[in-house]
Design a protein around this nucleic acid. Structure first.
Lengths: 146, 146
DNA sequence: CTAAATTAAATTGAGCACAACTTAATTATA
DNA sequence: TATAATTAAGTTGTGCTCAATTTAATTTAG
């Protein structure tokens, strides 16, 4: 039996399992990230720095889908821990460049086991992971177009 | 060329697109929910009340994957708006029962168009939505087992 | 060249999300 | 049946997340 209210059920809105699964997976990172003294947001920022070495707040924000309101305190915290250095661009004083330090590079060695450890909890086979991955990026790409 | 650090790339961790897509989709709800004077968390709580009419904080928390630390202020806010009433269970004074009001029921009429409006932004076809749905619940079910 | 528009970060304030702890009620056990 | 253990909510404190605003630097147009 269906009604005009069916769309208003939790189990009929894709957005709810997305939201719940996201939080539950992030929770699984916590014990491993606690050992590194990183929050999840600090961790994904460091993942970008391990690849890019140096970038502006705006560039980092585009990669993480976060704005300066979120990133400014996260970057200050990472700088306080000694993993990055923040400095104004000489070419354009509006731009803040964040650059990974030697200490930040070294942290990569300790972080390298984190993804495998968490992957063990999720228990999708490689085909399913690929499917999920493609669907999520399809959603992200469309929403990112605006 | 692959390295032992490949797992530490954003694009190789399922958790990142999950986190980013979740936030981006929720952002699409905002304009519609603003019109109802509801936040997203208040909205998913109301979705449960539209189905269940009355339940305890614990039961609601199990459905939403949220604890009393999050739900207590959300429920107080919904009560302040007149959509629910909170009262202690007579059978067990520890339990707080939250019950939808007439006004809360009426809100459903205004909310009924929200899911369709947002679904339009996501742009997955019905097969893809079903796939995504199944994969997300698979992740949730496994993580929920502990 | 200068005023207006744009841009990049930072700031502010509201509302989660969650861990850790507290309080009060109920249940289990010695 | 005392008391110990457990349970349900609430409280507290930290850290996002985001919208809206502010500040300062740069670019664009008149």
């Amino acid at each position: 039996m269906s009604s005009k209210y069916d769309g208003l059920k939790l189990e009929n809105q894709i957005c709810f399992p997305l939201y719940a699964a996201s939080r539950e997976v992030i929770k699984r990172y916590r014990p491993y990230l606690d050992a590194l003294q990183l929050t999840y947001t600090q961790y994904i920022a460091m993942m970008v720095f391990w690849q890019e070495k140096s970038l502006s707040v705006k560039e980092l924000g585009e990669k993480l889908f976060l704005d300066s309101g979120t990133l400014t305190p996260v970057l200050k915290s990472l700088e306080a821990k000694g993993y990055i250095i923040r400095s104004r661009s000489k070419a354009d004083e509006r731009v803040l460049e964040a650059k990974i330090t030697e200490k930040g590079e070294n942290l990569k060695e300790q972080a390298v086991t984190v993804p495998q450890s968490v992957a063990g909890c999720v228990k999708l086979d490689s085909t399913e992971v690929k499917q999920l991955y493609n669907l999520l990026y399809k959603v992200l790409d469309v929403l990112n177009e605006d």
